[in-house]
Computed example of a mutant assay.
Amino acid sequence: MGHLPATWCVPVVRADFRDDGVWERLTDEIVSPTREGFRAHVEFVEDRELSGLDGTAIAAGYPRAYPHRYRHPVVFVVDAVTVSLPEHPLLVVNLNESDETGPFRALPRQIQAIENNLSIANMDFFEFARAADPDGVFRGF
Rank of each mutant, 00 (worst) to 15 (best):
L85A: 13
V22H: 13
V12R: 07
A57E: 15
A6P: 06
G136L: 06
H68C: 00
I111W: 05
V93Y: 03
F138G: 02
D99Y: 07
N117V: 00
G140V: 10
M1C: 11
A6H: 11
P86E: 00
S98Y: 12
M123K: 15
V92F: 06
F17D: 14
T7P: 02
A131I: 05
M1S: 15
A59L: 06
V74C: 04
R14V: 11
R25H: 10
V78Y: 08
E46I: 01
E24I: 09
D99M: 02
V13D: 03
L90I: 03
P33N: 06
R14S: 09
L91V: 02
Q110S: 07
G136E: 05
P86H: 01
I30D: 07
A65Q: 11
P103D: 07
F141Y: 15
G55N: 05
T34C: 10
P86K: 11
D19F: 08
V45D: 00
V31W: 03
G102D: 12
Y66A: 02
C9E: 10
G2T: 09
A132Q: 06
E127M: 00
R71H: 08
V92A: 05
W8D: 11
Q112V: 08
E29T: 00
V45I: 10
H41T: 12
H72W: 09
F141E: 13
A132S: 15
Y62F: 15
H72K: 03
R130W: 01
E43D: 10
R109C: 08
S119V: 10
A131L: 08
P11V: 12
C9I: 00
V75A: 07
L50D: 08
L107C: 07
T101I: 03
L95E: 05
R39N: 07
D20S: 11
E49N: 10
T82P: 00
E29V: 07
V45G: 01
V93E: 03
A106C: 11
D133Y: 12
A6K: 13
F76K: 02
T34S: 14
E115K: 05
N116F: 15
P33E: 13
E43V: 05
R69M: 02
V10E: 14
T82L: 08
V42L: 10
C9W: 10
G52D: 12
A15H: 04
I58S: 00
G136R: 04
E100R: 12
A121H: 14
F125C: 10
E46H: 11
Q112M: 13
V10S: 14
G140F: 11
R35S: 14
R69T: 06
R14L: 11
H3L: 14
L107E: 09
N122T: 14
D28H: 12
V92R: 09
T7H: 02
N96G: 08
A121S: 15
E87V: 00
A113P: 00
P67E: 11
A121P: 01
I58C: 02
L118T: 03
L50F: 07
P73G: 04
D79S: 00
L118R: 10
G21E: 15
R39M: 05
P67F: 09
A59G: 02
V75K: 02
L91Y: 03
H3Q: 14
